[in-house]
Design a protein around this nucleic acid. Structure first.
Lengths: 186, 186, 186, 186
DNA sequence: CATGAATGAGTTTTCATTCAT
DNA sequence: TATGAATGAAAACTCATTCAT
């Protein structure tokens, strides 16, 4: 089965997350993927199609792996811990995914569908925060702000880790989770 | 007086912060600055020189405007409030500056001097955090982590604001400051 | 087989020998070679690399075709005749080669290797002249001077021919050879 | 009186003789001449006008200084000696002039008038050679060939000298003259 | 007269995309 | 289906020339 398509997507994730969309050339990408330059175009119409496909798939995968299947009866504190843990698990399993998604946030080459996936993912979180606020567990700030602060704080740690400034073991992951929770709990 | 050089730097800040380094073309930049394409090269040797000049000047300006002249005897709580206020003041005065600096963080076209300015800025914060921990006011996590979490949280809010998701008035600024402080205070 | 590379080199020989390095533009060259502008860069890193490659190959070819395989026991007079004949044969087979090599002599865009090829070629002649002088056959002047005078005289005839001032048939070639020999024989 | 015009012409001689027409830029030329870039255009309509002016003036000066005022009754041998001496005197007084004139020989940016000056100079020599042949003093080859061989041989020596390969003192100048004469005398 | 900052057409070079194999 | 050589449009950059001072 076509492993080439995946080779291309994996290479694209690596390069786009490092050098960005415009900083990555198709020949480079072909070399990194171990395929001919023309081969990329058998699977993707254009560079933009490729980046959109990649963006959507990772955004969806993050949403799925991190936000889905939260036990409905889980107390808020434990729920947050679970989310935070999943975030770090994901970040460690797919080190380039968060950088990639973050780097391409709101870029003008993202198409309608990418924006929709983006919206859906945001909506999930948004709803969750609203519930937490209704339950008087989360602080009363615009959900967009709470989400931005927590998610950015998480991303900040991941970036520090990838830059080699710290190693995030389980202890540190837990500690950061506590701090993030302290930021948003009522 | 050479207003052209400033026109170019201002246009570059606007475009680089939006489209990134590789996504911004020199003709675009020339048009945005209202100068001829060749004029840019009278003031900057190359596109790389330009982005480095810009990076260094803004990084230095942020450091100066936000971190400098902190009253030595200011209590930690008040000190943090002051810093947070200054960050928002800066972000509102120069809406593109933080995005620009953040977007170009650790890019491979940044030269030695840009990295040095970067280091100096980081060192200032690092020292401050260490003091706060010695005074038992700040939580005991690696300073790089605390800095990353707070600064990223701030950036997250600014980005949400620029995306039009929220309006950050004084009340909201204060509220976010409290949340950020809650994240790092012991 | 990569005939394109040869097409480019041949076109470059023609244009560089006529208009010089700076006077030849890459689009012109591409058109003359019958290839796309980008194609040139698949085979040569830069215009400078191209001119150096060309210089080295022709300098080496001249040296090989003209100076190599001289029968060791050939009397000086016959040896000179042979060299002169070979020079004209070469000039008539590759009408632009001598102009090209001469025009680019000591140009600052020639690299280390081009200079080495240059030196090697010069050394061959130099040694030959020294031997001729030791044998009391050649006049006692600095070899560099003898070489310069003979080679330049030859080039002068070739240039006159190319400018259309004369036609150099076998008779004229022989006559010029006699004159050149008269210039340097003891 | 306008020394600037001369400054420009002198700078142009130096740069054009070294780097050629296309290899010399107007700003470079302005700097070398010690004038503003715009100043050049007060004296010369364009770069082409400048090079043509320069070419004509030097070609004329060479013709005047070297070929004019030859005592009518001077024997051929002495006449040749005088010419050769004058050539070397000229070359040593104006080291760049011969290179410049030679380098621009038959270039397509030379205008009608430059070609005429060229023709006139050639005609003088041509006539002289014809006379010498009529007098049975010079060898019977096409005058264009004789002229090319002698003049090129001379240029070869000058180039060797400028490249630093030899120093041409009076003895060597005389020796080369003898060799050149041997080449063309009957 | 003289300047040199400013320009845009033209240069070298890159790169997304195509297509013959 | 896969390739990578080939392309030309567009990028970064240069330079002859102009013009406000």
């Amino acid at each position: 089965m076509s492993t080439k398509r995946d080779d291309i997507l994996n290479a694209a994730l690596r390069l786009f997350s490092r050098r960005g969309f415009y900083g990555t050339t198709m020949p480079e990408l072909a070399r990194e993927a171990g395929v001919g330059a023309g081969t990329i175009y058998r699977y993707f119409d254009s560079k933009e199609t490729l980046v959109n496909t990649l963006y959507q798939s990772w955004k969806a995968k993050i949403t799925e792996d991190v936000y889905a299947d939260l036990p409905a009866d889980l107390p808020w504190r434990a729920r947050f811990t679970l989310l935070w843990t999943r975030l770090f698990d994901f970040a460690h399993t797919h080190p380039e995914a968060f950088s990639f998604v973050d780097l391409h946030y709101h870029s003008d080459y993202l198409d309608e569908q990418s924006r929709m996936v983006e919206q859906m993912s945001a909506a999930t979180l948004f709803t969750m925060v609203l519930e937490g606020q209704a339950d008087q567990v989360l602080v009363d700030l615009p959900p967009a702000v709470l989400i931005a602060m927590v998610y950015s704080a998480f991303l900040g740690v991941v970036r520090a880790e990838q830059a080699g400034y710290v190693v995030v073991d389980e202890t540190l992951a837990t500690a950061t989770e506590e701090r993030a929770w302290a930021m948003i709990r009522r």
